[in-house]
Design a protein around this nucleic acid. Structure first.
Lengths: 349, 349
DNA sequence: CATCTTCGTCGAACCGATTCGATGACTGAT
DNA sequence: ATCAGTCATCGAATCGGTTCGACGAAGATG
């Protein structure tokens, strides 16, 4: 049975102090530079450190300093599928954090169950959190607002006043897609949104994308119908069948559902519709998904990696100066013209 | 200027003790149950806790207990693209860890630069680490072996003796794919591996998959050529062009490169080859990628989510009993027959 | 030469928990 | 009535750092 004293004998600051024949505080000051230390002792200390390979214990430091140098990334539970964009975003976050000497702690937060979330914030495991998958009305955001714990949202709530956030302008981007199709002469188009469930929950990108579609359809005087669609290929295929049976005269599809994209293409192929000759498609998607389909998708490329970096910067800003007004950033990436859109064919239905 | 005493006045165990009129140690015992506490005081303490919402500080607890209740996930740097499988795996890891009350700390480790890795292990931010993207000869593994820090590898090194790991049997799975094509009568097949760079680095799955292909081609008496291919659609398309110009008589493709899959299909479409009529394809891929292409890919579905769970279990085993012999698990998921393979056509070249 | 700084260093307190040994109250057996 | 044995609780030490106030020595100033 391990007794209290025979812990893993990690080298600690006391050991360094002893060997360098100085006090522990001097070692600390030599390392942090917060008070002057003579060149001679600094050298002696450094030598000892190099010799036995000392690295300060993170928990002890966190306790003493009152900051953990870790940030939380609260991402959605497994039920919803992950998208390329989320992964890309995660990479950006981790990378940007590492550069600034912060670690990223992952947390999944489900609907009611927020145990892991409580661990992060309540037990002060992190200095701030990034909330993903924001809903227009989001209880997590309300809670964070109350507790004054530093946070940033990816996506924005209905009333984002006083919160820091970074978001894609889904409304504007979808409007652009519609405009693009309208300019190509398409008149009967559809919108393939994400799943019914996400929309009902008030998932902000789905809602704002929907608004963008509805407004744009009216603005350009088109006929537009909307469909919700699960985040997988099979749902995409089924969705296309519905679309074509509802209105065989449809010539354009706008979508935000990158995971269903492969299925949408497959459904069209089965129905004998060629892209872009018989059907034009455009939307919002990570560039790798957009380029994985044939023909490649004309789409607004989500700069997910950069969004990760921005999120970190906004969050660190909140942490270092909590009293400053929160900033935000609304991104509008340009639409990459690829091969999936073409002028509307003169159809004689 | 904030002075030392006006920290964020988080409620601490002392505050609880004061209000409940007991000592701090009693509060601690009431919470941990490591010593008996009378029902009356336990209730009083619990009441105070509920009232002012106390949660023990993680850093302090980590320092006192000598364990952080966090695990590190060391994943590859951004240069290589992420695959569906990695994301799925990450989800499995985070979920399994959460269930066991552990958090996951992310770290990217590049070739030489292992600053973030040092933070995790050297500063004892975590109790153990999971290493991804293992190479046959992996310096990280050697280092971990020496330091006796608990770890698990995803994928196994050339000599995995004495390490805990979970891996896909790439060699066996690729052999199965080849066998499947051989049984369908294909005689001239190719292998589309991952990128040249990864193979050269000794990336274990790429190497073992290659071995599987080479051995199987010999075993079944086929003609087989291997190609390396970047992790993106464009590379996949280019690769198909090379394949068809090198040997137009090729009728089967086996691949481990899920990110290039879309490009492979596109290249075949451009060349006028129909899948599976003119060309059969099978391989190893996450089921979502396999089903995103048309026709859907006959492939060994990577149980990435489950691998994450297994990795956590193996790691926690190492942590709780470092002296026990490390265990491992080699997974051989069955091949899902989808629509991308068919009997070889009688070609008259 | 006494006084005032400045510099370098030290000891002690502190961060917020856990855990060990000790102590006092109560119970039950003798 | 006494003594041993539980049971509940407390105080103090500890984990490994950081930071504050103090203090002695050296150099500058008058």
């Amino acid at each position: 049975m391990p007794s209290r004293s025979d812990r893993a004998e990690s080298v600690n600051i006391g050991e360094i102090a002893r060997r360098a024949k100085v006090s522990r505080s001097t070692v600390s000051y030599a390392l942090s530079g917060k008070r002057p230390v003579s060149e001679a002792t600094r050298l002696r200390i450094q030598q000892v450190i190099d010799e036995i390979g000392y690295q300060p214990n993170a928990s002890a430091r966190a306790l003493a300093r009152g900051e953990t140098r870790a940030l939380g990334l609260v991402f959605p539970p497994a039920s919803t599928h992950y998208t390329e964009m989320q992964l890309e975003f995660l990479g950006g976050v981790v990378e940007a954090a590492a550069v600034r000497d912060y670690d990223i702690l992952m947390s999944r937060t489900g609907a009611g169950e927020d145990r892991s979330f409580q661990r992060l914030v309540g037990e002060r495991r992190v200095d701030g959190v990034i909330l993903m998958e924001i809903r227009l009305q989001d209880p997590r955001v309300e809670r964070m607002r109350e507790t004054a714990f530093p946070f940033v949202t990816i996506g924005r709530v209905a009333d984002p006043e006083g919160t820091a956030w970074v978001d894609l302008d889904h409304q504007g981007l979808i409007r652009h897609c519609v405009q693009h199709l309208a300019e190509l002469g398409h008149e009967r188009i559809v919108f393939v949104n994400r799943s019914e469930g996400l929309i009902r929950l008030g998932y902000e990108s789905a809602r704002r994308g929907q608004d963008g579609f509805d407004l744009a359809v009216e603005e350009f005087g088109l006929t537009g119908t909307s469909y919700s669609c699960g985040d997988d290929a099979a749902s995409g295929e089924a969705c296309v069948q519905r679309i074509l049976s509802d209105d065989p005269g449809t010539t354009g599809i706008v979508t935000m559902n990158e995971a269903a994209l492969g299925g949408i293409y497959r459904g069209l192929a089965h129905a004998g519709r060629k892209v872009p000759h018989d059907m034009s498609i455009s939307g919002i998607a990570g560039s790798r998904w957009a380029e994985a389909v044939t023909p490649a998708l004309t789409a607004a490329d989500v700069p997910a990696h950069e969004m990760g970096r921005i999120a970190i910067d906004l969050l660190l800003e909140r942490i270092s100066d909590p009293s400053a007004a929160p900033r935000h950033q609304l991104l509008t990436p340009p639409i990459s013209l690829r091969a999936s859109t073409a002028p509307a064919a003169r159809r004689t239905v």
